[in-house]
């Protein structure tokens, strides 16, 4: 997979809530809907379980984009998890900007278990958006030692 120039395939890490978005992704799969293959899915119990450090870790380890997907507002199985995810992601996006990382590389979506089509559309669209942004080049770790 080429990391630069033409043919760049973005690497995306997706943290999907077990109760909704993960099932949505599953539905997209079993219904054989077309979607970009760039997303690596990590199943979590709730979008509220996604600690900001998971997202930073993904970027640090080479993700070009991170998707956090959870139940629609009001539908979280732990009541408040997705609201917490929203608050954290909004603050984290601002911080990413200060770090020199385009905030669009982090995306939060509400996708229900029935929305297979929406899952496919989101992952394709996000892939296209990241393709346009290009690879995420992080500051090289300082070489002082």
């Amino acid at each position: 997979m080429s990391r630069n120039g033409r043919g760049f395939e973005p690497r995306i890490v997706g943290f999907l809530c077990n109760w909704c978005s993960y099932s949505g992704a599953d539905l997209a799969g079993v219904s054989r809907m077309k979607s970009a293959p760039n997303l690596r899915i990590i199943r979590v119990m709730c979008s509220g379980r996604v600690d900001p450090s998971f997202i930073l870790r993904a970027f640090q380890l080479g993700a070009d984009g991170v998707l956090v997907a959870g139940c629609h507002p009001g539908d979280c199985h732990y009541q408040e998890g997705n609201a917490k995810a929203l608050r954290r992601v909004l603050l984290l996006k601002r911080m990413l900007r200060d770090f020199g990382i385009d905030e669009h590389r982090l995306r939060l979506e509400w996708i229900s278990a029935a929305e297979g089509e929406r899952f496919a559309a989101v992952s394709t669209e996000f892939t296209e958006q990241l393709r346009a942004l290009g690879p995420l080049v992080l500051a090289r770790r300082a070489e002082v030692a």
């Binding site: 450090s53 930073l56 608050r87 954290r88 603050l91 911080m95």
Partner: peptide, 15 residues
């Protein structure tokens, strides 16, 4: 137990 202080603090305040 925390790897990244800022991420943890951000999470605590945002919540």
């Amino acid at each position: 137990r925390v790897r990244d202080f800022g991420a943890k603090a951000l999470s605590a305040i945002a919540s």
